[in-house]
């Protein structure tokens, strides 16, 4: 099954028309604004550190059930041989900057997944997270859910979380703190 299809099933997203790398279409603000803003607003606030909408919680919902209750599109998808990263939404970032970030995350994921695969430690996995610009100008993760099982957490930390933390993010402005909501999957045939 193609990775993008796996991703949509895993996170309960169907009907996406993923953009091929290098052929990014203009982000459709209206389509993603509601869920993304909802997710970002709640997650950027101090009160709800680990909030993730129930219907998108990969720990509590089976793939089939999620598909049934949650049909949504990605703004942008970056596909690589070992993984796929989907942009759920961005806040206080231009669409181009958000897409660039997703491409960078996908590149890092690909490099890392190859390395981990060589060590025979790559397990099919998935993650959804919200990252914001941290106090030192690097990515800082405020919300995260990792698919359960095997060494998925280790793969996620090494291939998604660590590179994100080491990536410069757009500077915060008086308008707000830039934030990015993504979902990714890797290691699937």
């Amino acid at each position: 099954m193609p990775p993008a299809r796996q991703l949509r099933l895993l996170f309960g997203i169907s009907g996406a028309r993923p953009v091929q790398p290098g052929r990014a279409r203009r982000p459709r603000v209206v389509a993603w604004a509601a869920p993304a803003v909802w997710l970002l607003t709640l997650s950027c606030g101090a009160a709800s550190r680990d909030f993730v909408p129930v219907t998108r919680d990969v720990r509590s919902k089976g793939a089939a059930a999620s598909v049934a209750v949650d049909r949504r599109d990605y703004v942008y998808i970056a596909r690589r041989p070992h993984g796929v990263v989907g942009l759920v939404g961005a806040h206080f970032m231009t669409a181009e900057a958000a897409a660039r970030s997703v491409d960078r995350i996908a590149d890092e994921l690909e490099t890392c997944a190859r390395r981990v695969e060589q060590r025979r430690e790559l397990a099919p996995g998935a993650i959804q997270l919200v990252a914001i610009t941290g106090s030192r100008g690097m990515g800082e993760i405020t919300d995260m859910k990792i698919a359960p099982g095997g060494p998925v957490a280790a793969n996620a930390l090494e291939c998604i979380v660590a590179p994100l933390r080491a990536s410069p993010f757009p500077a915060a402005t008086s308008a707000g703190i830039p934030a990015l909501a993504i979902e990714a999957t890797w290691g699937r045939e």
Binding site: R49, D50, D143, K145, A153, A154, V161
Partner: peptide, 20 residues
């Protein structure tokens, strides 16, 4: 006071425990 670990911290524990 909040004793709840973040998902990232839970993942760290899971990874370190598995490694050990």
């Amino acid at each position: 006071i909040d004793f709840e670990l973040t998902e990232e911290q839970k993942a760290l524990i899971d990874t370190a425990r598995r490694f050990a």
